[in-house]
Amino acid sequence: MKQKMAKLLLVVCFGAFLISGCSCLKEDVKVEEPIAPPVKVVEAPPAPAPAPPPAPVVVAPVKEVPVVVPVVAPVVVLQSVYFGFDKYVLTADASDVLKKNADAIKKITSKVQIQGNCDERGSAEYNLALGENRAKTAQKYLITLGVPADRLSVISFGKEKPLDTGHNEAAWAKNRRDDLVILK
């Protein structure tokens, strides 16, 4: 009898313990559940390889106005190259401009600095990196077009040097650019 009683007690007690335990447990789980799963490194979108980039499907960066940027150099004028928002792949227009630039650069002996720039919308820090990628994309393409690598250097100004200080798409489109500057 006593034995039975004790056994019964044990069972009931655990029952009670479970009931009370349940509510606590649930809350614990809730807290722990949303831990982000370790992210597998997924390949980035078509990183512009040294090979000429494919024609991009990017939204056309607002009527590529062929703004001829008057660069310091008196002899040769190198045109700027424009990009889509948050993009650093070359558009078809941009590759055409770079081809002309490559020919021009080959005619001179000076070194050329490719300066990557961004529009004002993103964060200053991220834009510094983005501008650098834009400059490097152009650099790689120029090298594949036969420009000696040692004559090219890159720098990013992020959104620090806007060409147009307006706050509209037209201004932004002008600011998402690589300037090619002939160093003396």
């Binding site: 009683m5 007690l9 009931v12 007690c13 009670a16 009931i19 009370s20 509510s23």
Partner: peptide, 20 residues
């Protein structure tokens, strides 16, 4: 003792249920 434990158990079960 058995009686004591049983009644105490009953009481606590009620309390558990209420808390729950």
């Amino acid at each position: 003792f058995g009686l004591m434990v049983a009644s105490s158990l009953l009481l606590h079960l009620t309390i558990y249920a209420l808390i729950y």
